[in-house]
């Protein structure tokens, strides 16, 4: 494969993945509105298209057409930069996620992964940690007290929970002996469900910590204090309108999807089938290529479903409760999990 071919193929992959991700983001919003609607005993969007399925399209068009207001008192360069950072970081991290069987492709070129990096997990963590600036700068540059409070809360929350999040992943990394996402998935693929890290790997405590930290990292209920509408109007994006607001909105949902992908890869066996080798694969090569993607999407979908379910069920935490919970329960628990896992691995 020549340099040019490689470049063109990569460009194609990037384009396809970005489009699929953005469509996924749009329909995650719809999924949330529908599900929360059903949880609250109403229908949710149902007017545009069958079952309201075209709602995301009209919403997108609406955001484009709305007047874009930039308040006079904002600090313009950073005000304009913040949504780009937020959305950019949210979209970039999908680049290292393998979402299909890596054997599809040739000459070390994977069709179902944009880039196979040795330290894929660290790349995702690094990009997420840069994404904090989007929120922090948005609040500060808006020159609005609610925005500033929202972004201060968010920065503090993200820094606190990033620790627990990172430490909860250490157990998984130790079991796989690698930071490469493909190898982490392959390390839990032998017996299907039984060898997934969450069950057979005995990493359910780590999964629980990851789940909690992920809710906080993506500013989702019950930890959505940075944008708690009852006290901060809309938090850091109060002063944003039109497409700039939509960019923050999309960034939030793209982050949800990324977090779901990471959970799938690290704890739920990635693209591998939950039945392991019990059900033999059909000989058809198309099915062999597409079935792993089906499992992957299904797992990410159930994670997103859980997200919305939790939002519809739990009330919001208070800020001191949030900090206490993160520092005094999740963090020690994560460290204990690391100690336990390493003892177990050493014993084995």
């Amino acid at each position: 494969m020549t340099m040019l071919q490689f470049f063109l193929w990569s460009l194609l992959k990037v384009a396809v993945v970005t489009v699929v991700l953005l469509v996924g983001v749009a329909y995650t919003v719809l999924l949330e509105r529908k599900l929360v609607g059903r949880i609250q005993n109403r229908w949710g969007p149902s007017r545009v298209g069958p079952f309201g399925l075209l709602q995301p399209l009209v919403d997108g068009a609406k955001s484009f057409l709305k007047e874009d207001i930039i308040p006079t008192a904002v600090y313009r360069p950073l005000y304009l930069l913040a949504p780009i950072i937020a959305l950019g970081c949210a979209l970039i991290s999908i680049a290292v996620v393998p979402f299909g069987d890596p054997r599809v492709g040739r000459n070390g070129f994977h069709l179902f992964q944009i880039s196979d990096v040795n330290i894929g997990l660290l790349v995702i963590l690094g990009i997420t940690s840069i994404g904090v600036y989007g929120v922090a700068l948005a609040g500060w540059s808006s020159n609005n007290k609610y925005s500033l409070l929202g972004s201060l809360r968010s920065s503090a929350q993200l820094i606190s929970y990033e620790l627990a999040l990172g430490l909860s992943l250490v157990g998984v990394v130790m079991r796989a002996g690698s930071l490469n996402l493909r190898i982490i998935v392959e390390s839990q693929s032998s017996e299907g469900l039984l060898t997934w890290n969450i069950f057979g790997g005995l990493q359910f405590i780590a999964f629980f910590i990851y789940l909690m930290a992920a809710y906080a990292e993506t500013n989702r209920s019950p930890f959505d204090l940075p944008e708690a509408e009852s006290e901060l109007t809309a938090g850091y994006h109060t002063e944003y309108s039109s497409m700039k607001f939509a960019m923050f909105f999309m960034a939030e949902y793209a982050n949800m999807i990324t977090v779901g992908c990471v959970a799938t890869l690290l704890f739920l066996g990635g693209w591998t089938s939950p039945f392991g080798n019990l059900i033999p694969l059909p000989d058809n090569i198309v099915i062999q290529a597409l079935l792993p993607i089906f499992w992957f999407v299904l797992k990410v979908f159930s994670f997103l479903f859980l997200y919305v379910w939790v939002r519809g069920t739990l009330p919001r935490f208070r800020y001191d409760q949030l900090m206490n919970y993160g520092w005094r329960y999740l963090l020690p628990l994560a460290i204990l999990n690391i100690v336990g896992t390493s003892l177990w691995l050493a014993y084995k």
């Binding site: 660290l122 840069i130 922090a136 500033l148 201060l152 820094i159 990172g166």
Partner: peptide, 20 residues
Amino acid sequence: AAQVIVYAGAVMVLFTFVIM
């Protein structure tokens, strides 16, 4: 990766946090 996560991601977020 460590440089990005620790310095650009964590230390500098604290810097901007304090400035804000």
